[in-house]
Write a protein that binds this DNA or RNA. Structure first.
Lengths: 336, 336
DNA sequence: CTGTTAGCGCATTCAG
DNA sequence: CTGAATGCGCTAACAG
């Protein structure tokens, strides 16, 4: 039923080696022969079997990408960056969703490795000892994107989350705010959670503002948890005049919570976040946020991986991409 | 360097056939032997080579999924449904993004087929003759999800888009609206575009309302095009009192365009859409919308595909899942 | 420029 | 219950 390279060879009156050569664009084939082979391929509807190819060549020209949460548009954007560069270098991509569950991440890494991917891109989420262990057994290069490992052993590309948060809070400070609350991600999450909280703390410290426990709530990155956190702040005797959210989505929840109470953004309360997803422009007022270059993170990490896979020398195994605060309408000065 | 089934066999003092049996959970192995083999596997850190496996067995236990746009949360939700069921049946999935480009769709289908996937799930987008041709050369089952082919030849699972649109417009009609505009998707898109426009037209016709060209704008599914379309309607001498949008995102754009002009939703203009994505609850006022059961579409189509792959009989090769209008706050009666 | 020959790592008959 | 043998479809030396 299935037509093989052997059938093509017979049809074209050449050896299978020659067919293999034309299929692989090997220049050592007379144009005329090449033409014959192409015609035979066409006639028979031959489609190369990538599995056999992979077994024989020990290369699959595909890289595995584990994405923690496919419904998170940030990661989707990273994936787009990865894809574009992968295509450019003629790699295929196997995207695997891990559903934000560590056990699934490990499982997915292993099936990807079983599938003999030529390289692995691990996106987002915490990198635990168990991950490192799994990566070690891979004899293909691995690069982390949009995350990093604690002891900086694995190549990665990410932004400086601590500094991003710091910069966000700084812009609040610059407006004259002193009562600044934070809606954080879970502190177990080293980059999106812990690091951003650290940045918040550092900015406050430097400004000589004592930290208040009431002013920090941890959410789950979702809209609803932003609403909930903000409602908590609003219920305080003295509510904050500005809020820093670890993600856009929670920030939007916060904005709506504020508005639902009849207050106004930014007149009564300012809001800023980190992400700058497409959603930031899809709220009123439009959300000011520190932009993470998600697409670039994907693109750069894929580029790095190609170098690693080709055993080319890399100057930088740990790359930190710049972030930038983009000011829209959700931040203003506190009321007098 | 890499440890093979052969190494394990030697280490365990059995033949490679036996190792293969335990790896594949073949019951015909003495428990004691099985234990020995497991230990050898453990000791050597053996990881089965899925590529070799695929070649030998002519099955890869993976299904290919082509997703038109990874940054579209609707499709992400479908993918989640697919994933969950795939896991349940021990299939791996390869997700491939097609970037909303037909040429890339075709290319991706072919690489997936080259990779010898056991089945193919084609998500969203128009199914052209070229697609059908590509599917035909696949000698594995294909099912369309969240889309259908014109002549109903290929198994698929989707909602009835025409009826969904019809129902949406009906709820506007029921409130007493007669000046109802539509922000459509491109009419080349059979399901999300054309079919929804047809539903809009039918509802108007049945209500005896003449269609007005000024009241139909085609957008690109994005927020900005919703804003733009709405601004057009607002610039009319007599603007509509209700707007039906083919997608949530454009609807949200419309809402903001209305609000930016100092008008109110739904007091001045009602808005309804099809999708009911998570974003629908992330606007003020919250968006009324016809819900598409995205997760279920994914789950059901994957389930259907498993049956096809196992050559089990299927009663329904074309399944149409129910939709439902969920009323939130963006629809009200027109002003007297 | 082209053909011959070995495997790649494993599942799968078929014997025993 | 277990082992030996064969080949999946293709690439990669190696000759010629």
């Amino acid at each position: 039923m299935t037509v093989t390279i052997y059938d093509v060879a017979r049809e074209a009156g050449v050896s299978m080696a020659t067919v293999s050569r034309v299929v692989n664009n090997n220049p050592n084939v007379k144009p005329q022969t090449r033409k014959k082979v192409y015609e035979a391929i066409e006639r028979l509807g031959y489609r190369p079997n990538a599995v056999a190819r992979g077994l024989a060549s020990k290369k699959t020209t595909t890289v595995g990408v584990v994405i923690p949460d496919i419904s998170n548009s940030n990661f989707a954007e990273v994936a787009r960056g990865i894809e574009d560069i992968a295509n450019m270098y003629h790699y295929n991509i196997i995207l695997c969703n891990a559903d934000k569950r560590k056990d699934k991440e490990i499982r997915v890494i292993n099936t990807l490795l079983e599938k003999q991917v030529d390289g692995l891109l691990f996106m987002g989420g915490a990198v635990t000892e168990e991950h490192i262990q799994a990566f070690k057994t891979a004899n293909v290069p691995v690069v982390l994107c949009a995350t990093t490992d604690e002891d900086n052993k694995i190549p990665s590309v990410d932004i400086n989350h601590e500094e991003a948060a710091y910069d966000a809070v700084k812009t609040l400070l610059a407006q004259g705010h002193t009562d600044i609350a934070m809606i954080s991600g879970t502190l177990q999450d080293p980059s999106n959670g812990y690091a951003r909280y650290q940045g918040y703390k550092r900015a406050l410290e430097e400004a000589g503002i004592p930290e208040s426990e009431d002013f920090v709530r941890v959410g789950n990155y979702r809209y609803e948890s932003g609403v909930e956190a903000m409602n908590h702040f609003l219920s305080l005797d003295k509510h904050p005049t500005a809020v820093f959210s670890a993600t856009d989505e929670m920030a939007i929840g916060a904005i709506h919570a504020i508005q639902d109470k009849g207050l106004r953004v930014p007149e009564d309360i300012s809001v800023i976040s980190v992400d700058n997803s497409r959603m930031a422009s899809m709220v009123r007022p439009q959300l000011s946020a520190v932009a993470q270059p998600m697409y670039d993170i994907g693109a750069v990490s894929m580029r790095l991986l190609t170098k690693l896979m080709k055993k080319e020398p890399v100057e930088q195994a740990k790359v930190v991409l710049p972030h930038e605060v983009v000011s829209r309408q959700s931040v203003g000065a506190p009321k007098a």
